[in-house]
Design a protein around this nucleic acid. Structure first.
Lengths: 230, 230
DNA sequence: AGCCTTATTATGTCCATACATATTTTAAGG
DNA sequence: CCTTAAAATATGTATGGACATAATAAGGCT
């Protein structure tokens, strides 16, 4: 069992909700009553209830009290690791290889996606990621050379762009998009599969404040699965 | 600006980390120093720092102090909504249609996945989900009739199994698996696309405690994307 | 009834303090 | 020098009290 009062109370309340003691939309006792029931201070119950609200189990409203969330929304959380760590976590040996690296004027669609000006240039890179010498993922990436001028000195032979950027600009924000695409000839050849194979693809755009840092499209090997617990 | 002291402090610290005031792995001032700097109680700083630790910005250790996380892991959070809400959120009209519903003895692989006994039976259902009368997703589902006996009285003509189960067993746990698959003939016909098309697929298994409730495979229409902010 | 003002109420936040706990540092002893 | 025990330290948690805030309920007026 957990020892701490607030996590213990949290778990207890969670079980009582799961058991059906209170059903969807029901109001549960207020903090003072619960604190008496559990024999602790109100702040401790408050902490437990806030945690439950944070995870979507209950909805809280001033004066309205705390209710079991009538619209429970399950949240899936994914860790988005560095590809090397993802590979090594499975016990495989990681290797990457930069197949292309050039200053390029991005296409209009990329330009829009990155909110770039008319003559802004980017560094375009293609990288292959291997697990035990088998293709693991094929990466296409655009980097804003103005926001990240040090990119020209980056040791991309040792570190993948993926990893280097995480270490250089660690706390940027961004968005992610998962989709399924049919491999075209180029992607198929890179991943060692047949054109048309369904490929799990991740699109990521990264910002620091309002400055565009990098955009990436990742094509995973055929059969790749992304897994998480709810 | 935010008014509350603890969120304000949290944001301030987040900015200071992003600005590079402390770099990866650096130790940041302890709670007492920060509380003096911000002119508040230690508990308030503690709350802000715990929130930062929770989101992976810092790592905290007793006596060791608080450090900027040297291995920043980005977390993507997805809301997994009821399909009807997902469709209606885009302004489309939702409709579903149960195309098959029968007691069935699941295949060995499904049986293993669900940790079912040798002669346990399940209710097997196939459902089509439409958005504005266009195919949105095709669902295959197995339900444990022993854990959910009320399933036989469920109004599946009005409510999809998806929605009914969420309302009936709201706070179950489970796991999710995202992948890309080539549509076979059956899936392609259901979704109105050609066999071989890359389809975004979601596999979900749901438990209440250690009891299996339901397993589902969802095939989304071609071109479907799952999007989130980091 | 309908409308406005005022009380009531449950949660939100903060504080000062106290003690617990994990971890490192230091000191003592061999 | 190495091992072991004691002190120091930063975070973790709990408490009781106080006041703020949002939302509802109650009351009084036209």
């Amino acid at each position: 069992m957990t020892k701490n009062s607030h996590t213990a109370i949290r778990q207890s309340l969670e079980k009582r909700i799961q058991s059906g003691e209170w059903s969807l939309g029901d109001r549960i006792p207020d903090e003072i009553d619960l604190s008496q029931e559990y024999g602790c201070a109100r702040t401790t119950v408050n902490r437990a209830l806030q945690a439950l609200a944070n995870d979507g189990f209950v909805v809280r409203k001033r004066k309205g009290g705390t209710r079991v969330n009538p619209l429970p929304v399950r949240q899936a959380k994914f860790d988005i690791p560095i590809i090397r760590e993802q590979v090594e976590a499975t016990g495989s040996v990681y290797r990457h290889h930069v197949t292309e690296k050039a200053i390029a004027s991005p296409t209009p669609s990329i330009r829009t996606r990155l909110r770039l000006g008319h003559d802004d240039e980017t560094l375009y890179m293609e990288t292959m990621h291997f697990a035990d010498e088998q293709p693991f993922a094929f990466e296409m990436r655009w980097i804003n050379t103005i926001a990240v001028p040090s990119v020209f000195n980056a040791p991309f032979d040792r570190l993948s762009a993926n990893e280097w950027l995480v270490q250089t600009m660690p706390f940027s924000s961004g968005d992610v998009e998962f989709s399924a695409v049919n491999a075209d000839r180029r992607v198929a050849r890179a991943l060692g599969t047949k054109p048309g194979t369904a490929i799990f693809s991740i699109n990521r755009t990264t910002w620091l404040g309002d400055r565009f840092i990098t955009a990436m499209t990742l094509f995973h090997r055929a059969g790749f699965q992304l897994y998480t617990k709810l």
